[in-house]
Nucleic acid binder design. Structure first.
Length: 487
RNA sequence: GGGCCAUUAGCUCAGCUGGUAGAGCACCUGACUUUUAAUCAGGGUGUCGGAGGUUCGACUCCUCCAUGGCUCACCA
């Protein structure tokens, strides 16, 4: 890689330091305080003239001749440093003024307040901990180029404090989910990422190869079928937080690898799960934001108000088309024609209702809304509604027009499940490469008897987007997928 | 994959109807012992994303390519 003048300059300094016998990457400095601790205990530390040792990255230098100021930043906070030539000695002072923005140093000294009231550390001694060889982006405007921000997230994190905050919140959101579920006696498990059969969702898998076994494997598109096997095995409440990989297009809402929470609870149904979902999200939001009213894009979203309606009700309300009165496919098709809805590959009323919903309704669901009773044709793993077997006891949660969660009473009838797999296989053979594959072992597991259960999947990235007001999934994934850089 | 837009110094950005580039920050040198977007004096560090083409002459116009953004398609 080419070196520009700024990098050459810094490498020269590095050589000079080495020649002077100074280790530019020493690792024997032990801090006594974080910067936040120093600031928080300022009065006491100042009164005692206590010598504190802190470490961090130099983010600004203001040289005044025989004295100098610098800003030092660690994860916790920022503090101003003050070095006087006659106090630290000429040699050390020259070293100090020769630092670059971006260097890591450890400093020891006492605290005082400047005339303008800024808490400042008066340096007694300091030590270079890491020489930085590349210039950082501009202090005032930061790093804006989104491509650079994603490719060099480390730089983004150094100079854009909001970005760091987003990922701290992400961690707290996931921690909050885990805490909530553990409190409810859910067991956290890890199931395979490499599947001989890709199942649990309608999606294109990535394919990889195991050399020793000489078999192709699929990177998982969902953990669902493994988690349900655990219900067969006798675990009653299980969950997994982890990555799924889907070989699909990228967008504001889609990254090829993304994180989900999936949970399964024996002897519960989708209504129990609906309550759990609502409580889980409220609890997490409250813990993380301390507020259930959030701003997302141009929307004011109130997490206190949750609506529930069936898909047919939602279509009726938002499109004015009532599928309660539709009894055959031709009627459904003519309704679709009226609304200029494309149903080319759709062969059932259920699929057409779902098209209506996805095309006209989803984007209008701004406040938290559970949509229930999904057509059986688009729900191959969900249990039928006992009163209306054309629909399933399933819900999806929409907030700000985005699907946040998907859940249902789990299909545990092995014969029904086998038939639905067979239908999926037919669709697959007809060219739908996202239809389910047959999973014989899963059927075998169901034949041993899976207790009735409710299951839930939450798109963790999308929830994090919502709770951090991030408009792109790439803002909540540390290293989002990009094309390879031409090196 | 389609459409639209963008790509100029390490970063943030100017650059007119075509006359081969500028500012601020950063960096270097000097001055300055409480500054804080420090200030003052001096220094421009560049394959104008890449490759062709038009032209006397291209950052500027055209074509192709690369990367990114938005959007459509795709996507429980």
């Amino acid at each position: 890689m080419d070196l520009n003048e700024l990098m050459i300059e810094r490498r020269k300094k590095l050589e000079n330091l080495k020649e002077a016998g100074i280790e530019p990457y020493s690792n024997d400095f032990i801090r006594t305080h974080s910067i936040a601790e120093v600031l928080g205990n300022f009065e006491e530390l100042e009164a005692e003239e206590k010598e504190v040792k802190i470490a961090g990255r130099v983010m600004a230098l203001r040289d005044h001749g025989k004295s100098s100021f610098a800003d030092l930043v660690d994860l916790s906070e920022k503090i101003q440093l003050y070095a006087k030539k006659n106090e630290v000695g000429e040699k050390a002072y020259d070293l100090f003024t020769d630092l670059n923005i971006g260097d890591h140093i450890g400093v020891e000294g006492t605290l005082f307040e400047t005339g303008r009231g800024e808490i400042t550390l008066r340096i007694k001694e300091f030590k270079l901990l890491t020489k930085s060889l590349r210039p950082l982006p501009e202090k005032w405007h930061g790093l804006k180029d989104v491509e650079l921000r994603y490719r060099q997230r480390y730089v983004d994190l150094i100079v854009n404090p909001d970005v760091k905050q987003t990922f701290i919140l992400r961690s707290r959101i996931i921690h909050g989910m885990r805490q909530y579920l553990e409190q409810k006696d859910f067991l956290e498990v890890q199931t395979p990422l490499m599947h001989p059969i890709a199942g649990g969702a309608a999606a294109n898998p990535f394919i990889t190869h195991h050399n020793a076994l000489d078999i192709d494997l699929y990177l998982r598109i969902a953990p669902e079928l493994y988690l349900k096997r655990l219900l067969v095995g006798g675990f009653e409440k299980v969950f997994e937080i982890g990555k799924n990989m889907r070989n699909e297009g990228l967008s504001r809402r889609h990254n090829p690898e993304f994180t989900t929470l999936e949970l399964y609870q024996a002897y519960a149904d989708y209504e129990d799960i609906m309550n759990t979902t609502e409580e889980l999200i409220k609890t997490v939001a409250k813990n993380v934001l301390d507020d259930l009213e959030i701003k997302y894009n141009d929307h004011e979203i109130n997490l206190n108000n949750w609506t529930r309606m069936t898909m047919i009700e939602a279509v009726k309300e938002h499109v004015g088309v009532d599928f309660n009165n539709v009894s055959n496919l031709d009627e459904a098709k003519s309704l679709a024609d009226e609304k200029h809805l494309d149903y080319e590959s759709k062969t059932s009323i259920g699929e057409i209702i779902n098209e209506f919903f996805e095309e006209f309704v989803e984007e209008k669901l701004i406040q938290p809304t559970f949509i229930t009773q999904y057509p059986v044709e688009v729900s191959p793993l969900a249990k039928r509604n006992p009163d209306n077997p054309a629909f399933t006891d399933r819900f999806e949660l929409f907030i700000a027009g985005d699907e946040i969660a998907n859940a249902f009473s789990e299909l545990n009838d092995p014969i029904d499940q086998k038939e639905r797999f067979e239908q999926q296989v037919e669709q697959r053979e007809a060219g739908d490469d996202e239809a389910h594959m047959m999973d014989q072992d899963f059927i075998r597991a169901l034949e041993y008897g899976m207790p009735p259960a409710g299951g839930l999947g939450i798109g963790v990235d999308r929830l994090v987007m919502l709770l951090t007001s991030s408009e792109s999934i790439r803002e909540v994934i540390l290293f989002p997928h990009l094309r390879s850089e031409n090196q």
